[in-house]
Write a protein that binds this DNA or RNA. Structure first.
Lengths: 230, 230
DNA sequence: CATGTACCGTACCGTACGGTACCCTGTCAA
DNA sequence: TTGACAGGGTACCGTACGGTACGGTACATG
């Protein structure tokens, strides 16, 4: 029978060689993972990039040089392994902090550009694409919370990070909007546009760093054109 | 050994009760499909909505009241069946034609709003989500052209349909842009924003017809704010 | 009526894979 | 030295499923 709890098994706390790193990530993520376990999850990530979520547990064991039995002991079942991997990777994604000092038009624009660049860089990476594909695949099947996890650490996290910036911009008289969610949607759309869905559908010519920079600057510019003040 | 040709087997041309319907769809789609075959593909669509692409060929045979042997005879293998289904559904999607008469600001805005509404309605439907999920899932694995098909009939088709409208708008002095692709990206982003990726990741509260109307009108308004002239 | 064809239903085969059991080695503590 | 234990390696089991074979039926055509 499958285990009851999701995420990581609480009753198996191995070596604990490294201290629990990132704590404030937005979700319970890589807290109780030993070094060895992180190696395993790294192997899973590599496999996912290489062949999506169509890897066998045996392949993971082979790639990570550990036994299947250990994998099942640590992660419960295949889905737990997948979930732990996605959680862990999601906890590693970092979005640039916004400057705490008083906003100016230029610093706001720079912050928006930086956000967009960071975001576009992430979502066009092989790793993110592989994870999003897996999450999308599993989102249909009730079981498995992959979609929820990626959603939380993806668009929702971006929204939560951006809203303070928008509110600060409005407070500083630089932006004008009624609904902050509407403003977020506009910025998200201008920045991402069809980039992500095309990448997910397998289009090969993804934007490079140079194009991402251009697209981000344009998105920030256009957003300010729509919601800018003065 | 598996059959050589993709798509539909050319050597099996059954009943052919109905005349080959839609011809100018943008891709070779539902030409040589008999009524019975369309019934089968309908069953596949229903199954895909219900359980993604995790259906067995036996389940298709059961749902369509036909034999597995016939399925393999018609479609070669499971992937051929899936591909034929996606092609067929894609060929059914219709995007509203744009008015041929002289554009005005209002008719342009209405056309843009109509486009956005049509598009948002499609991509938030259960069927489209199921198909996009399947295409995204298979896009990673080299094999299977599902991603390509959905891409062609999705964003790319939308782009090809919109560009004439944009060019007409520019010719009429209503729009100003240098790169029509850039203008498309902006409109796509403003219209779709995070709606599709959230739906694909399993978020349940998708926009209804009312919200779609609102979002579409706003997208058109904002697009005109960015690229409008006069 | 005889023959061929298209198709349904189902039994069957091979394989891949999730999950479990068992054995063995290295480590560490008493 | 000895025993407990974590964990690697591997054989094994059950099942699900892709794909094939075959028998039976309806129908069309000579």
């Amino acid at each position: 029978m499958p285990v009851m709890n999701m995420s990581l098994h609480p009753d198996t706390a191995p070596k604990q060689t490294a201290a629990p790193a990132d704590a404030a990530s937005g979700g319970t993520a890589g807290e109780g993972l030993s070094e060895r376990q992180r190696e395993v999850l790294n192997a899973v990530l590599t496999l996912m990039v290489a062949e999506g979520d169509r890897f066998s547990v045996a392949a993971v064991a082979r790639a990570a040089s550990c036994s299947k039995e250990t994998l099942y002991k640590w992660f419960g079942d295949r889905d737990g392994l997948l979930t732990a991997t996605v959680r862990w990777q999601a906890s590693k994604v970092r979005i640039p902090d916004l400057p705490d000092k008083q906003l100016t038009h230029d610093s706001l624009k720079a912050a928006l550009t930086g956000f967009a660049t960071s975001w576009l860089t992430v979502i066009t990476s092989d790793l993110s694409i592989a994870l999003n594909r897996a999450a999308v695949s599993h989102a249909g099947s009730g079981k498995s919370r992959l979609g929820e996890i990626v959603l939380t650490n993806g668009p929702i996290a971006m929204k939560q990070r951006l809203e303070p910036l928008f509110l600060a911009g409005r407070a500083a008289g630089l932006l004008a909007f009624d609904d902050v969610g509407e403003a977020f949607r506009a910025f998200f759309g201008l920045a991402v546009a069809d980039t992500q869905i095309r990448a997910l559908l397998g289009e090969d010519n993804r934007p490079g760093a140079r194009e991402i920079e251009t697209m981000s600057a344009r998105a920030a510019q256009q957003f300010l054109g729509l919601y800018g003040q003065g």
